[in-house]
Structures are given as structure tokens and as C-alpha cells.
Design a protein around this nucleic acid. Structure first.
Lengths: 173, 173
DNA sequence: TCGAGAAACTTTAGGATTGAAACATCTGGG
DNA sequence: CCCAGATGTTTCAATCCTAAAGTTTCTCGA
């Protein structure tokens, strides 16, 4: 860790904000340490992937996500569909699609049956672009997580799935 | 999941942007599914905690983190120290400290030995404020993660620690 | 048929965060 | 002693997000 400060002390990408995790003392309940590790791992991993995506493809996670959803639906998705699927507000989607359109990766089409709706579709260029990125992205994930034994991976997946179910209980509380 | 769209299809807080995870297909390598779960769990958890922190204390995770670090170093930390510890860019730290200063929770002092440096210290009010928040924060984490069995928790911690070590290998790559 | 409310999208205002560039200040080798 | 490069901090532009309006279009029931 540490990571040398570049020219003017602008810290390197390193990792994403670890959130409070880093903050909470190193001693403490098992639960606290677990939480710290959890956010530490996902943050660092996210940062690595995001950095590579930006470096190799000059794009962001958010845009990659949009393309990924569209790739699964060749007939296109409305803005609201995208918003729901990406768990991002509708306002954000407007901006993302605008950007992608500028790059010629998607097109907006108007639904003849409902003029309120906009249907966003991948262009051929968008599709090819996405497939290239997805391939690399998957390679990265596999190469990083693949260092864990299959057993460790399975155990993790299982326990995280358990946790995931519990989390839904607390969302509204 | 799903979560009804409010008035104008503006999605509710729900969860944080899941990042690319949601995007990448549901079938695929074990590694991919694991990554999806990982970011899903930490994102949801982070969202829950962040929401509660904001509701009860009108503060953000980022600010809470700064306070937490400062609490551990009564003699104060420089901006760069904070940046390194929080894994956040230096630019962001400036803003965070500005905000905290406005609230009277921290003070900036100038290092007589090195006039480039700024030393940030917790005020008494800042310390008390932080301790109140930390108590609640810990309760939340314990109550959420405590629903997992001790065995599951230990397994998770162990595997995540393994992963965390591997991740450092990839940061610079 | 008409009009009120719902729904889809955009716009706007406000935060956060990053990365780069601009400044200010040190430090060490000549 | 002096200056080139290193270091500490701030500023700025760009990206991304949310929440709250605002606009247009549907839909459905009286």
C-alpha cells in the first residue's frame, strides 16, 4: 500500500474511497472487521477494473453498464428500463445516453406506440465496442478472482449470497 | 428488488450504483458471479449505512471517515496523510476538511516546521460528535452482520482477507 | 369526450469525486 | 549558495449521481 504520491501529491488512483470501513478501528467486533474487509475488497477491485476500463477504452463503468444492458436486449430498452436495471436515477441515464450517442454507440428511437418513450438501441459500432470491452473485463475478473482456490470462491459466493438475502431485510428499516 | 419508481420515475435510493457487476451476464464463470455478489453486498450495505448516517447525523460517510482517522491521531494529520489513509484524492480532502471546519468539528493548523503542510486536528466538539456517531455506526454493523453465524463470519473474513492480499498485487499492473 | 392523474423523459440545482494543473515550499547536489 | 526536482495543498474542469420540478403524452372513468 502507500503508493507513492505523484508529481504534486495528487494521489494515484489506488483504490476507491473505502468508505468508513478504513476508518473504524482495527480492533473491535468481528462484525466490524468483516465489514471493513468487505468494503475494502470490493472497493479495491472496483477501482482496479474501473481504472483499466478507462485506460484501455476511455470509458467509465457507468457507460459500460449501459452498453451491457443494451447488449442483452437487441430490441432496445426505454430510459426507464435502463434506470431500473442499473439502479440509477433517470436523470443520470439521460446524461449517460447523451454521451454514448455522441460517440455513436447507441441511438435513440421513438416508440410509435407511445410517444413519451424513447427506445435506446445499440448501434453495430456500439455492440462491437462493448463486446471488446466485455471480453477484457471478464479476463480481468477471472484473472484476479481466479487466484483464489475454487473452494474459497465457492465458500465466498455462498456466504455472500446469504448476506445478500439478509441485507434486503434492512433496506427500509 | 425492483423498488417502485416514485413520481416521475426517479428511482428511490435503493442501493448504490452496482457498477458493472449488474451488467455482466448472470451466467458465466464462477469468478464473474462472485464479483457480482461481492459488489452487490458491499454496495447495499454501504447504502444502508450511508443512509442512516445521513438521516441521524446529517453527515456523509466521507466526513465520518475523516473524523474517524483524526480521532486516532490526537496530534492531527496532514492533508496528505488523510488522503493516503482514506484512499481519496487530495482534491477531495480539501473539500471535506473545509466542510468539517465550517461545522467546527476540525481545525487547520500550520506546521511551523514545514510551511507547505496543514495539520488538521479534531476539536472537542468534533471528537464528541464523532464518538456519538461511531457508537451508532457500530451498532448498525453488528446488528446487520451479526445475523450471520459466527462460522459464516469467520469464513468470510478469512476468504476476504485472502482476496485482499491478492488484490494488492494487481493494483499497479 | 373530457379532464385528472399517471407515466416517460428532460432539466436544473446541488453534492461528491477524480485527475490534472497551478502554486507554494522544501531539499539536496553541485 | 542556488536551483531543479520533490512534496504539500488548492483549484479547476469533467463526470456522475440524486432529488425535485417541468413538459409532453397516455389512459381511464364519469
Amino acid at each position: 500500500m502507500s503508493g507513492s504520491i505523484t508529481r504534486q501529491a495528487t494521489s494515484r488512483p489506488r483504490s476507491r474511497a473505502n468508505g468508513h470501513a478504513m476508518a473504524v478501528e482495527e480492533k473491535g467486533h468481528l462484525e466490524l472487521r468483516l465489514w471493513l474487509r468487505l468494503i475494502g475488497c470490493s472497493g479495491k477491485m472496483e477501482s482496479i477494473l474501473s481504472q483499466r476500463l478507462r485506460k484501455e477504452f476511455k470509458t467509465s463503468m457507468a457507460r459500460f453498464d449501459v452498453l451491457a444492458q443494451l447488449e442483452r436486449f437487441p430490441d432496445g430498452l426505454t430510459m426507464s428500463d435502463l434506470s431500473r436495471r442499473l439502479i440509477v436515477s433517470n436523470g443520470a441515464i439521460t446524461g449517460l445516453v447523451d454521451k454514448l450517442m455522441q460517440g455513436g454507440l447507441v441511438v435513440r428511437a421513438y416508440d410509435p406506440a407511445d410517444r413519451r418513450s424513447v427506445i435506446v438501441r445499440l448501434t453495430r459500432k456500439g455492440r462491437e465496442s462493448f463486446l471488446r470491452m466485455a471480453r477484457r473485463h471478464e479476463e480481468w475478473v477471472v484473472s484476479i478472482l481466479g487466484e483464489l482456490s475454487i473452494e474459497a470462491q465457492s465458500e465466498l459466493l455462498q456466504n455472500l449470497t446469504l448476506l445478500h438475502r439478509n441485507l434486503d431485510t434492512h433496506v427500509k428499516s
